[in-house]
Design a protein around this nucleic acid. Sequence first.
RNA 1: GCUCCCGUAGCUCAGUCGGUAGAGUAUCUCCUUGGUAAGGAGAAGGUCACGGGUUCAAGUCCCGUCGGGAGCUCCA
Length: 604
Amino acid sequence: MAPVTPENDPLYRLRHSMAHVMAQAVLEIFPEAKIAIGPPVENGFYYDFDLPRPLTPDDLKDIEKRMRRILKGKHTFAYREVSAAEARDLFKDQPYKLELIEGLAQGQDEYGEKAASASTVISTYKHDTFEDLCKGPHVESLADIAPDGFKLLRVSGAYWRGDESRPMLQRIYGTAWPSKAELEHYLWQLEEAKKRDHRRLGKELELFMFSQAVGSGMALWLPKGAVLRDTLERFLREVQIDNGYLPVVTPHLGKIDLYKTSGHWYTYRDSIFPAVKEVENDDPENPEGEIYLLKPMNCPHHIEIYKNEPRSYRDLPLRYAEFGTVYRYEQSGELTGLLRVRSFTVDDAHLFVTPEQLEDEFIKVVELILYVFRTMGFADFKARVGLRDQGDTKYIGDDAIWDISQNAIINAAEKVGLPYVVAEGEAAFYGPKLDFIFRDVLGREWQLGTVQVDYNLPERFELEYTGEDGQKHRPVMIHRAPFGSLERFIGTLIEHHAGAFPTWLAPVQAVVIPITDRHVEYAQQVAKQLKAAGMRVEVDDSNSRMNAKIRTAQKQKVPYMLVIGDKEQEAEAVAVRLRSGEDLGALPVSEFQARLQDDINNHR
RNA sequence: GCUCCCGUAGCUCAGUCGGUAGAGUAUCUCCUUGGUAAGGAGAAGGUCACGGGUUCAAGUCCCGUCGGGAGCUCCA
């Protein structure tokens, strides 16, 4: 998430000032508290504290109360610049501030990053009794802040300076708005967002589940979710076949040496599931024996397929596609519904191309991904070019190759006219990538589709093809996955549509609702006819009234409800109700079938 | 993995000061056969996540484990 700045956030001053007021309130309650940093963030602010005990929700109420009292004082904010020595004296009891001051004195910003301008001014803002190391800006006066326009939302842990090895502080998050009405609107939005949460809808719509007995982070797909998933897979398979992809199928395991060759073993050892089989082995050259790992990615398997026979430039590009299930031992605290799991299926493909083909192929891949997103009705995503962080040593391959790859990606994005942001440190360890990012209902960002250029694995696996000149050449690989993972993609799809999937994806496309028992037989006939045409139709023959059946179908977000009474039975028709509540009246069954087929054909 | 919060019927939740559990809904049975978002009655459903501990007595208090949530860290 891009940092909030005074330039891009009109409420920056308000929220930044609220952070100061909160820090004052906390210090009044806990005079021994050590304060860290407290910036504005999207929709609010936070402040990090080192406190003598964990905070409870009741503490938040007390802090809020005290904040209101401080606001009533209508204090003004006073700015002053201080020397490093003065600052050290002023904050002599605040170790975190002292660390910040040392950083500032060395030309860093408050996050310890190198500041944009070389000469860092050390400044403070003071209101009432509270003076904080701060570059501002703030509101003129606390009189400008509505005392009922804010709320403290939660307290959670946060490492000092985001570093796992540093102390864990308590972070209090708050939201602040110019008025009570705007605050309430925001809180209402949060509630609405929760109703779209894929975890909740996944349960309500019977799409997927998790089982303690199976294990964390491993989704079990229920029949309705599996139908949705299968529909997506079939769609993408067809698109891929039309675009020259070749299906392959590979096992879920691979020998450890495969991942040593690829480099995954050294870089991602911690997140690879422990060995599943160790074969006894007396070979002193290879004391580890045969260790099999659950595959954390599909590329090495596809590479082996490439190596199965000598390749000619005439064979390229070669595009191997597989819905490949991979396993990654994510930290327990990272698991989140379908969005972060330990077992997931990548709609993977690896393209082996000549260097000359790279840019064209890359563009075609981006266009395919955009087509998939458009078909899904996804508009709320952004593209991010992930480059390596020059300071980090996890990346393999030499600089020249990275430069070529990075340029190829940026050129392609620009040729396609795809707006993108550049993010350093977001590359894969073997190459730069173009990611498609979406935000979930609670504002968290998740990577969906991805395209990666890779000169390194071909090198490591010594891939070759014979060129027009009869010489051996090294191919370039493109790794790509439009959905990214079926799990995460479906999670986002659920939230995007709030569970009301377009008809072609809906697990149940129509429910036939007989009004009385004597209509059940005809209802079943209708359903049989539609099912024979490949449509997903159910009959609600439960012992309840039509109104209740409609309510049930409505809550399940079924696109079409087909009501059948005497009139419809007589006319060989169905009375069509949409989940929007719209009543289309009676249609001949054949006419309804044509309409549903049209929806399916057009991905609506 | 770390900090904090949470775990009671399939689901959503109540359960006071510690005295061996309750609602709505879903399920099942019966009645009802109805025209666009809940017809009625009855029944069944719980090792209060799990394991220890304190106590005459634990859903309730304490410790641990597992699971979930928020955030941090991480993310091929």
